[in-house]
Amino acid sequence: MNSTFLLYIVDGVVLGLIYALVACGYSLIFSILRIVNFAHGSIYAFGALMTLFFINQGINPWLSVLITLILTGMLEMLMDKVCIEPLRKRNSPGVSTLIATEGYSYVVMNMLIILFGSGRNHFETFYDLGFTINIGSLPISSTKLVLLAISGGLMLLMTYIINKTHVGLAIRAVQQNTTSARLMGIKVNRIVLGTFFLAGATAAVSGALVAGYYQICYPTMGMVMGNKTLATALLGGLGAMHGGLLGGIIIGVLECIVAGTLGATYRDAVSFVVLIVILIFMPSGLFGKKDITKV
């Protein structure tokens, strides 16, 4: 294997980690409500731009991420209260919720354009430790290592929250049967809101990290990213955090190999071709669980 091909793979793994980070939010919302949140891409852009705003005010970058994390969490909660809960109460069909989240996405994106302008903004990398290690002929920068550590850590944290905590237990209970969960004393609305908050928080972290990695952020940065990470989440199996990680790395590596060998114009098609193939043979994705519906 020559060094050029190895570079594609290294770039692809990093890209995959980025996709997996953003895909977390899709998985969380889907795991409890069985809806795909099309607004997640715009909220991810909101996370990046708000972090930049706070950094520009002289606030420490990590503290800026923390403040933004609360704001993006609340933005997701607001979406639930304004767009999704009313539809849920009326037992509206799932497609109504999809369209509502799509509409909310455009509202957030246009609001960002009004506030920050449509141009590209420089976002200084705030997690560059200033060293590069060489594995053979492959240079791997500290930013890639930090990205790897944070992505992996975030996946583990989410998996722990879902599988090992009372909140996670409640989330899983609501996912399996809302009525039974309510009868068991679980405050369903609070759990739903909490899940939206968590999804928003992951959007802030991923937005800030990705913007820092590419050193750029802008209001429409979530459009392409949103579509690809949705494909990532579906490939891994919506609701399965570790699936998102693997799905991200598969898509990221394939994209970089295709972009490098066939041309960058084909890269966007890769995610969706892979997705279609996987969904034909494994409709629940690589690690997703089949829905069992009572008849």
């Binding site: 050029t4 570079l7 594609y8 770039d11 990093v14 890209l15 590419y214 750029i216 429409t220 940065m221 459009m223 392409v224 970089c256 190999i257 972009a259 490098g260 041309g263 960058a264 114009t265 890269r267 966007d268």
Partner: peptide
Amino acid sequence: LVVEGNDDYGPVVT
């Protein structure tokens, strides 16, 4: 050849 919307130019640079 590239399309707008992807900020990752790693393979092109390579």
